[in-house]
């Protein structure tokens, strides 16, 4: 067990965990941030997607020892970052994207990160960027439409 100082969603947290603990479990078990989900543990499904330095990353593969001072943002922070709902979340609701909902926070995190680097992505760019996120219920068509809508709305 070692102590780590993490900056999550703008707040400082101290945790005392094994250095190999993936950030996913630090968030869920130690910081009570359960919006980031566990789907596979091998970096294949994307349910655990967070932002490290603003970039989408699979937290089940990131050991806490590798984080250092790099800021982490989770789904809980995406809302807080903007103060109200992020355009991506708004589009998600307007287009009624979710079915079971389990993968959706990971999808949203990946989408937010994509729009940061590519504010007006083509359909192909969306598919590429989002291919690391599985939706078992098959809401892909709506996810793509929501990302396109969010991209459009942010030109205002």
């Amino acid at each position: 067990m070692s102590k780590f100082n993490l900056k999550v969603n703008g707040k400082n947290h101290e945790v005392d965990v094994d250095p190999t603990t993936p950030v996913l479990w630090v968030l869920r078990d130690h910081l009570n941030l359960i919006g980031t989900k566990y789907g596979c543990g091998v970096g294949s499904c994307g349910a655990c997607t967070i932002h490290l330095n603003g970039r989408a990353l699979k937290s089940c593969q990131l050991p806490v020892s590798a984080v250092g001072t790099q800021p982490i943002t989770t789904i809980e922070g995406v809302v807080a970052e903007v103060g109200e709902m992020h355009p991506v979340q708004k589009a998600w609701l307007e287009l009624d994207v979710a079915q079971c909902g389990y993968c959706q926070t990971g999808q949203i995190m990946a989408a937010v990160s994509l729009l940061k680097t590519k504010p007006h992505p083509t359909e192909e760019e969306i598919e590429s960027a989002m291919s690391g996120n599985i939706c078992r219920c098959g809401t892909y068509v709506r996810i793509k439409a929501a990302i396109q809508q969010a991209a459009k709305s942010s030109t205002k």
């Binding site: 359960i34 919006g35 980031t36 566990y38 009624d96 979710a98 959706q104 926070t105």
Partner: peptide, 23 residues
């Protein structure tokens, strides 16, 4: 009439909805 998911806001905000989240 088309109606939005009543729980949509909880889903996109990552609230505790699933057994995996229960504490």
């Amino acid at each position: 009439t088309p109606q939005k998911n009543k729980v949509g806001k909880d889903i996109v905000a990552g609230h505790s909805l699933f057994t995996m989240d229960y504490k």
